[in-house]
Design a protein around this nucleic acid. Sequence first.
DNA 1: CAGATTTTTGCGCGCCACGCAACTTTTGAC
DNA 2: GTCAAAAGTTGCGTGGCGCGCAAAAATCTG
Lengths: 221, 221
Amino acid sequence: MPPESPTRPGLRERKKQAARRALSEAALRLTVERGLDQVKVEDIAAEVGVSPRTFNNYFSCKEEAVCEFVVERQHRVRDALLARPTGESLWEAVTGAVLEQYSRDGEPDRAYVSRVRALMGHAALRGEFLKAHHTVERLLAEAIIERAEAGDEDVLYARLMAGAVESAVRLAFVEWFTSDHQVFLPTLTRLLRELAAGFPTLTTGSGRPTTDREATTAPPS
Amino acid sequence: MPPESPTRPGLRERKKQAARRALSEAALRLTVERGLDQVKVEDIAAEVGVSPRTFNNYFSCKEEAVCEFVVERQHRVRDALLARPTGESLWEAVTGAVLEQYSRDGEPDRAYVSRVRALMGHAALRGEFLKAHHTVERLLAEAIIERAEAGDEDVLYARLMAGAVESAVRLAFVEWFTSDHQVFLPTLTRLLRELAAGFPTLTTGSGRPTTDREATTAPPS
DNA sequence: CAGATTTTTGCGCGCCACGCAACTTTTGAC
DNA sequence: GTCAAAAGTTGCGTGGCGCGCAAAAATCTG
């Protein structure tokens, strides 16, 4: 047999991956098309050509399947982080990897925004998004630990960094689909910079630190 | 009639509050006693003396009712924040209000830890905890905005601060019920200090900043 | 090919969320 | 107090869902 690659997954594993992908994609597509309530688990399963019972072997509910793409994206963030040059500081590498991933295709168009808005209108999906974001946060934390070659002592610090960064991502995302402007990347950049700067302990004149507002407005695309 | 208090809620509102409380308390108690799977919505409703249908007028599922106490605690954090002296910086006030709330009764005993561990064992409850934490984060953000008298420009900053602080709380909580040691407050204190310090952008010798580890060990109780 | 392992599937059960329409309680104006 | 409107509760019905179980099918190992 040809060497393929070092310990290729094997047919079984590849089929599972494919099924999972197909199910989550079908779930997302159908939900965008018809709306969550008009999609039954049965429909998703039928779309992939698999029994409804099998769907529940992969996902515990349809909302989870719909949000799967959030988790998948984070796997790419992980790869990006591990590929950053070793010269960079940990923070630079992490924020670089995240920004890199989200700037891939620029800001999506208005139609996409309204589709996302429709999705987030359903409470069930908002809840599942939170679960997905938590998974994503743990993935990032593990990637940070790996990149930093952190010992047990630093695990908490890595998790804190992951939590802070993902808070910024989440906020930028909300800002993006809440407003009509294309402000995802500028907002995210600004928030990450503010996290890097930290929170001032001493009382100043105003309640918040003076930050340059350049990052708030969109850069020339 | 006696003046009671300025614009008292009215009987209707008070009854609703009472019902909500009774339901969430019953849900939590029964779940701790028997385990989530052994508690039906019907049981909770019966415990309060209300119809099962009414339960769903207050909570959309039993898990939500179980986690209600998390949200209630945040209302106390809000009050504490608004009561902090005006001399403090925003960060000091926020972290002070949070720590104040969580140091109320010191570290809970081992029995309590194992009960919490049992609760968090169920995936459904973990998910609902995340939802509750998200609610809590928004509450804190609003309280921060109120305290800082922040304009629209600073709303995002307030939300970022709330997100960062609640990340720390969440991490400290996990650390607490994961380990057998009483490390909630020390961990939380340390994480908040690291957030205040920010994340270094420049490359240093090690991947993480040198932080004094005093806060990691428990202070004399 | 043959036996072990893993996955899929059909079946069935109990629970649950929620729409609807009738009924009860609270409210506020007179 | 009386009464009508507003708000909350309840019973009923329904469709869907999550999952345990055991048989069947697919995959892996040698």
